[in-house]
C-alpha cells in the first residue's frame, strides 16, 4: 500500500479493549495486554469460522422469524396475527407512512443488509480479494453501527403486549416469531463482532 505501515509489519500489536500499543514479535495464545489485561491478539481468534457459524445460525432462524406471526391481536373474538412484514403494511395503511418506513428499514432492510454485507465480506476475504477495499471496510462499519436497531419490533411487541390487556374486549399477545426475531438480532450482532475487518486488508500473511 501507499505509505501505510501496519502494526503487524512493525512488530506491534494494539489492544482491542484499551487501545494500548505493545511491541511484540510473536503474540502467543493467552497473551495479555500489559495495561488492561485483556487478551491480546493480532487478529480476532478464528474470526472467519465464528462469523460463518453465527451468520448461518442467524439465517436459519431468520425464516421462522419472518414466516411466523410475531404478535396476535384479539378484539371481541376477532383474531388477527401479524408478521414482521404485515405489521409494516398495517402501519402504511393507517397513514403512518413515516413510521412504516422506519420499521421497514429497521426490521427488514437492516437484517438483509447484514446477511449480504457479512456474507460478501466472508467470501471476499477467503478469496483474498483486493476488490473495493475501502467500500467493503465502509460497509462493515455501517453494519456495526446500525445492527442493533433491528431490535425495534421486538420492543414494540413487548410494549403492546403489556399495554393492551382488556380481557375479551382487546388483547395483544406475543407470538413465537418475535422470539426468533430477537435471536436473529443477537446472532447477527455477535457475527459482526466476530468478524475482523483487518482481514479485508491483509494480504498473503493471513496465516496467524
Amino acid at each position: 500500500m501507499t505509505g501505510v505501515v501496519t502494526a503487524r509489519e512493525r512488530g506491534l500489536v494494539g489492544c482491542h479493549v484499551c487501545g494500548l500499543v505493545s511491541r511484540a514479535k510473536h503474540v502467543p495464545p493467552g497473551a495479555m495486554c500489559p495495561r488492561c489485561h485483556a487478551p491480546l491478539h493480532r487478529r480476532k481468534t478464528n474470526s472467519l469460522t465464528r462469523t460463518w457459524a453465527l451468520l448461518i445460525a442467524a439465517a436459519l432462524l431468520y425464516l421462522p422469524a419472518n414466516l411466523l406471526p410475531i404478535m396476535r391481536t384479539v378484539s371481541l373474538g376477532n383474531v388477527d396475527d401479524n408478521t414482521i412484514l404485515s405489521g409494516v403494511i398495517e402501519l402504511w395503511r393507517n397513514d403512518s407512512w413515516d413510521l412504516a418506513i422506519i420499521v421497514f428499514v429497521a426490521s427488514i432492510v437492516v437484517p438483509m443488509m447484514k446477511f449480504l454485507v457479512l456474507g460478501t465480506l466472508l467470501v471476499s476475504v477467503q478469496r483474498k480479494s483486493r476488490w473495493a477495499l475501502k467500500q467493503r471496510a465502509r460497509f462493515y462499519r455501517l453494519v456495526e453501527l446500525v445492527g442493533y436497531w433491528s431490535m425495534l419490533d421486538v420492543f414494540v411487541v413487548a410494549l403492546l403486549s403489556a399495554l393492551v390487556h382488556f380481557q375479551v374486549l382487546s388483547r395483544v399477545e406475543p407470538k413465537p416469531g418475535v422470539i426468533y426475531f430477537g435471536l436473529v438480532v443477537v446472532l447477527t450482532m455477535l457475527a459482526s463482532m466476530s468478524f475482523d475487518p483487518r482481514l479485508i486488508w491483509d494480504r498473503k500473511e493471513t496465516d496467524d
Binding site: 501496519t6 502494526a7 503487524r8 506491534l12 500489536v13 494494539g14 482491542h16 487501545g19 494500548l20 500499543v21 505493545s22 511491541r23 500489559p34 495495561r35 493480532r42 471496510a137 462493515y140 462499519r141 475487518p197 483487518r198 479485508i200 486488508w201 491483509d202
Partner: peptide, 14 residues
C-alpha cells in the same frame, strides 16, 4: 510498552 512515542493502531485495518 513502546517507550516514549505514543502510537495508535487503527482497529479496522491495523
Amino acid at each position: 510498552v513502546t517507550p516514549g512515542q505514543p502510537l495508535m493502531v487503527c482497529e479496522h485495518c491495523d
